[in-house]
Design a protein around this nucleic acid. Structure first.
Lengths: 115, 115
DNA sequence: GCCAGGTACCTTGCATTGCAAGGTAATGTA
DNA sequence: TACATTACCTTGCAATGCAAGGTACCTGGC
């Protein structure tokens, strides 16, 4: 496999990752209050590469659309942290998106099995 | 559920769709030679919304990166058609992407089950 | 023959958004 | 006080999906 193809592959993977990013972040937060740096660690543990410059604007967007809210909390070892939780709307959205995810899975499986 | 939330939801869904688009197109083509308009129909049947303005540039890109090639064929009822097939590289890539898809599925499941 | 309608391919311009890079500020430690 | 660490945030660029509009070929009715 040559360099060009590797890049193409990595690019497509990146696109997939982007697509599920927002969903994954909501999933992580749905597990309980959490702040940005820890969200990054959780996602990394799930093999999803995300960086700060992506996460912060996204969190702001999700807050502005009413899916998230946050509270400041002091830390024992550093500056204060913004702890995010899902709003009621956020929880509903996660449910809907889980369903959507299932649907896409079906779509892809139906395409795969035609081969 | 209000209008704003619906939009937010639809937006996130659109992002997911985008992410898997390229993969899905390759899957469709992997089933056998096919031309653009029929690709659109196949995707629609799998509940994936795609439009011409998205598909054509993407097909060109995939051709340029060597994943696809095409041949012109006359039609019995209209202008000639570009029939696409996967190259060897394309087939490899589809395999890789199927694997990637499985991985993302795992990631998401691991996140879901933490809740 | 000619033109209306259908089919098929393609391009332009805009808006969204992930990401690299760089910046600010609070706290802890030497 | 200086430096490191942790945490939050912003700017500018590049990629890309999509709406809208455009070109060209073919068929069938007149």
């Amino acid at each position: 496999m040559d360099e060009k193809q590797k890049n193409e592959l990595e690019n497509t993977r990146a696109q997939m990752r982007k697509g599920i990013l927002e969903f994954c972040i909501l999933l992580v937060i749905s597990a309980g209050k959490i702040y940005a740096s820890d969200i990054l660690k959780q996602l990394e543990r799930a093999d999803l590469i995300v960086v700060e410059g992506t996460l912060y604007p996204l969190l702001s967007r999700l807050k502005n659309t009413g899916l998230l809210e946050y509270t400041w909390e002091e830390s024992k070892s550093g500056p204060p942290r913004k702890y995010y939780i899902l709003t009621k709307k956020g929880k509903e959205t996660v449910k809907q998106l889980s369903h959507t995810w299932g649907k896409f899975n079906q779509s892809i499986n139906s395409l795969i099995h035609k081969v």
